[in-house]
Amino acid sequence: MRDLGVNILFEGLNMQRLLEGLWITTRIALISISFSIVFGIITGLFMLSNNKIVRLFSRFYLEMMRIVPILVWLFIFYFGVTKIVPVHLSSELVCVIVFVMWGSAEMGDIVRGAISSLPIHQKESGIAIGLTELQIYTYIIIPQAIRRLIPGAINLATRMIKTTSLAVFIGVIEVLKVGQQIIEYSLLTYPTAPLWIYGFIFSLYFMICYPISVLARKLEMKWQH
């Protein structure tokens, strides 16, 4: 019976469809992560602003994205915002929008943390040897800030990849949804289908996220001066 079970993965177009679903998942994650980095840097700079109101607003934005579960945000945008906006938004697009909003907030906090954790005398040393403000940023602050934020950024990327599984709730045909569909029509021939399909998807997520986690840890140790 076991042998019969695992074959479902290789039956017909199942594997191909699963991998296509995986591609959708990956695509959402990649696009979201890329935009989050860009907007995150901007958000981070807002969080470091000298203007108290700007800081307050960005802090409020961060807390809202953090305290409300992502799935709730997906619902808000998918059921709520899509009604207000005249343009049709596909579920995938809604997903990306919510993820980018969440990602920029978190990334902004990471950037803020990285820059503000630099000892003040780094900047002062730069001034003492006569560098201009721009030079100080380029040669001293930015390289060190990048090192400090990469572990957090990679950790965020891993979390975003895992959260893409929520897309199934708003109908995106990603890997989990594909898995569900395969199980539905295969259940009679392959009673153990859920075990193998979900087990396979489980290992897919693991195989993507684990190497990234290991990379983040290695980088963190390497740069731990």
Binding site: K162, L166, G179, L195, Y198, F202, Y205, S213
Partner: peptide, 16 residues
């Protein structure tokens, strides 16, 4: 830490 809760639930609830 490297797998989403949703998958874990599906595996437990439908797979086991």
């Amino acid at each position: 830490r490297n797998t989403p809760l949703l998958i874990q639930l599906f595996f437990l609830y439908f797979g086991l």
